[in-house]
Design a protein around this nucleic acid. Structure first.
Lengths: 258, 258
DNA sequence: GAGTGGTCTAGACCACGGC
DNA sequence: CCGTGGTCTAGACCACTCG
């Protein structure tokens, strides 16, 4: 970390031997990288507070303002959560102000109400080619397939097929899933230390096939929202492929554009 | 604008006579409001540069850092665009790095390729109740209804019904729409000074009815993505209701979650 | 070289939360 | 009361753009 005198870009990253590359990284960017490394290494766990800005500033030998800018960005990226007067905390999928941070489904009338989960299946198998490709696995690697249904006010609305790298999720069993109270992503954090940071979704309209129709209690051929979600952890490493079918007869997928 | 000495919240807004309200608004927030007012009033037009940070700082009698923070936020809200070495510019739907800033449809294979537009209809009428409600109009107010089809590589993919407040869009005719080259939102900016800032979408899966099926050249009953978009201008005032039907057989709606 | 945004620092003070 | 994040200032220097 460049000290007080000329901040002449003498930090850790950048300075790579790539010709004609910009190869300039501001100090606060380097601090960001260092903080993310610590998060990744588990130095501070989800829900815990990280050191205060002043502490971090002295640790990295930079001014508080520089640490502040780094934390600001990590905060807008939802890796950290600032709480005035209390401190800065590692973001978590539990106790998040909203449960189901990644589920964009909303009831047409306002009435929220929690979801009931029903586990249909949970097994280990060899990854199909397309799944392997999305998860950056070798074809033939083992994956966990979870199939489940979410119901709202008694009506089944979401059918999810969830694919996870078998290597990462050792000991994931149907029992663990059914026993656990709380969001699945919270279980992933506490049990395997895997945090979903962001996700990319591809959405289309499809007709319900026989299997889906039965599980969602509707007629085959009914139009359903198909939501394919690839969830990523630090460094944009993909760790979950989720294929959901949503019955949108009384719910909708909401999105904000800007 | 509070001068150099105690920045004791003596700005323009806040300080309202509302009891037990927080009633504290940081300086940079007040600056933000002032800048938005100028944008709204058309002091700087889309695509133009706004005054430099130093100029604005002296104009508002605050430090450059405070103006900077205000502009930073307006920039992440996509109202302004910063360009190092050149200045800060009013965001526009034209010449935006991507055309169709609000259209989240992507082809399944990477191949981009522009859209062909075909205008089906453009007429003025009394607003249906639901449309009036969404657009904050009185039922019976006149609205413009535009119906059009977007095609990619020759295949019709999107059928849009676009509802606009008649009062705001005086002189909008089918001719104007067909003549104009470039995104519709750009036309709205130049012709009526109306800028779409952000939008909210509700997405569901529906079956194609006869009319939609014919226009999109597919069988009735085919599952389609229904995208209802409410576009807002400054102050979150709704100015467009757009109901789109997307054929997602070779395209998908992409979304980023974080 | 002049002008613009971008980074970094140092220090003062304010608002909030909890002991 | 103290410690935390939040705001504001002032000034220095860097990187980018353009004439």
């Amino acid at each position: 970390m460049a000290a007080s005198v000329p901040p002449s870009n003498s930090g850790l990253p950048s300075r790579a031997a790539e010709l004609d590359a910009p190869a300039f990284s501001p100090l606060y960017q380097q601090i960001k990288t260092l903080i993310v490394r610590s998060l990744q290494a588990g130095e501070w766990k989800p829900g815990e507070a990280i050191p205060s800005e002043i502490d971090l500033a002295s640790r990295f030998k930079v001014s508080q303002g520089t640490v502040r800018k780094a934390i600001d960005e990590l905060s807008t990226e939802n890796l950290l959560v600032r709480r005035q007067g209390k401190g800065t905390f590692v973001a978590t999928h539990a106790e998040q102000h909203v449960q189901y941070r990644f589920l964009r489904l909303a009831p047409d009338d306002g009435e929220e109400g929690g979801a009931q989960r029903r586990l249909i299946d949970c097994k280990r198998m060899r990854a199909p080619a397309d799944v392997a490709k999305s998860l950056n696995l070798k074809s033939g690697d083992t994956v966990v397939l979870i199939r489940r249904v979410l119901s709202f006010r008694g009506s089944p609305v979401v059918l999810d097929d969830i694919w996870l790298p078998g290597q990462m999720f050792k000991g994931l069993t149907a029992e663990k899933l059914t026993e656990y109270r709380g969001p699945m992503y919270r279980l992933f954090e506490t049990e395997w230390g895997i945090r979903m940071i962001r996700a990319e979704e591809k959405i289309r309209a499809v007709a319900a096939d026989e299997a889906a129709a039965e599980l969602l209690q509707l007629a085959a051929g009914t139009p359903l929202l198909s939501v394919e979600r690839l969830s990523l952890t630090y460094d944009d490493k993909p760790v979950e492929l989720r294929r959901g079918l949503y019955n949108t007869s009384s719910h909708h997928y909401r999105n904000e554009l800007s």
